[in-house]
Simulated scan of single mutants.
Amino acid sequence: MFGRPRAWARRHPVLIDSVTISPVVLFCLATVPNFSDAQWLGGSRVGMPAGVFLTLALLAPLMLRRKYPREVFAAVALMSFGQWLGGLSELPANIAVLVAMYGVAARCTAAWAVAAGLVAELGLALAQTRYGRFDPNAFASMSVFVIAIWITGIYANTRRRYVEGLVERAERAERERDQQAQIAAAAERTRIARELHDVVAHNVSVMVVQADGAGYAIDSDPEQARRAVQAISATGRTALAEMRRLVGVLRQEGDHRQEYAPQPGVAQLGDLIKQVGDSGLPIDFTVSGVPQALPEGEQLVIYRIVQEALTNTLKHGGPGARAMVDMTYGRGEVLLRISDDGRGAAAIAPDGGHGLVGMRERAAMYGGSIDAGPKVGGGFQVLARIPTGVTV
């Protein structure tokens, strides 16, 4: 129910922060006349124009507090320090220091959170020493308020990371479940394909033998030739029945469109790149050389190799990974180079995994080769060479 609004809010953090901070800005601007001409704790009068300017300068950076939490806190803290150096009275807008401190605690590492909390405490101490006699009781009371905000930010950070971890584990479990189902289905289809091959090979062999016998006996023994032709007819019908039965098992139930959809090829690589890119993996796709007319089988091999390599990068590359797909038409071969700069090289065993095995089998059908492994400097690379003009 709330999935789409939350996703929209994550895509527009500046707009959301601007809307949430606008009531604070209006309140602080409305109270500037009450504070600009007053001397609070012995500070100098700020003045109405300077008070409005200082209020906006302190609160405006908060619109970017989620996108740049450390930079926003530094800017607000430095402006407040400059206000302290100038001996100006405090304004309601100085609460921006605490809001920015919360942003650092809620979105940065523990070290940055501790640093922001110490800076806020230092600013509190400086405010008391600059504008009047230092009162330990007052300092302790206000520190409780500051520490409460800091702890709330730490809690929000911990909960956010926990939720992100749960979401990531759930997505990984779902992907692994789907992959296991696909692996099991692929294994079953491989078994059925072998059975189909045996059925066709056996029956065709019988038909060839019967046809040879009919050819020899057609003049000397027409009756024997007639029986041989009848045996050929019966064997052919049996072979067709077995093929229909086995091929029917391979069909996807409930998805009749897939039965008639053409197999993807080189022309569909752009759509594949876009589809994977929409899943969160930036991809640079380049094609070089003179394009050649390739058989549909070779085009399907190229498409599946690129698809499997990008799937591995999406699974194991980690956040911030980027993939590169280079397709080069050479003399007598097509060279595919699919690489990434992610951290998933250790998660993909060069000699294991169904994906790499499947890629090698597909390439071997056309006399090609696959070289897959970690890159120097990080990342993973799949290098495929597919000879062109090969008949299988």
Rank of each mutant, 00 (worst) to 15 (best):
F73P: 03
G42E: 10
R45I: 14
F27C: 11
R45K: 14
L64K: 01
A50R: 15
A75S: 06
R66M: 10
M79K: 04
D37L: 14
V52L: 13
M48D: 14
T55S: 07
Y68D: 00
S36M: 05
M48F: 15
Q39M: 14
L29T: 08
P33D: 12
L62F: 04
V72M: 00
A30H: 06
A74S: 09
C28Q: 02
V46Q: 10
F27R: 06
S44Y: 09
S44C: 02
T55F: 04
L78P: 01
P33K: 13
D37S: 15
A30F: 11
S36F: 05
Y68L: 04
A74D: 00
S36T: 06
L29S: 08
R66T: 11
A60E: 05
L64T: 05
A60K: 01
R70Q: 12
L26G: 06
L78E: 00
L56H: 05
A60N: 04
N34V: 11
P69K: 02
F73Q: 05
V32H: 06
L54R: 12
L64N: 03
A57Y: 00
R70D: 09
A60D: 03
L26K: 07
M48T: 11
A30I: 04
A74V: 12
G51M: 10
F27L: 15
L41W: 14
L56I: 10
A38F: 13
L41G: 08
V46H: 06
G47H: 07
L54G: 03
A60L: 13
V46R: 12
V25Q: 01
R65E: 09
L62D: 03
V46C: 09
M79T: 14
P69S: 07
G43D: 13
V25M: 07
L56M: 12
L58N: 03
L56K: 08
V72N: 02
G47L: 06
L78W: 00
R45N: 12
R66S: 15
C28F: 03
A75H: 00
R65W: 12
G43K: 11
S36Q: 08
P61F: 09
F73G: 03
K67Q: 15
M79Q: 13
A74N: 02
M79S: 10
V46A: 10
A50G: 07
S36V: 07
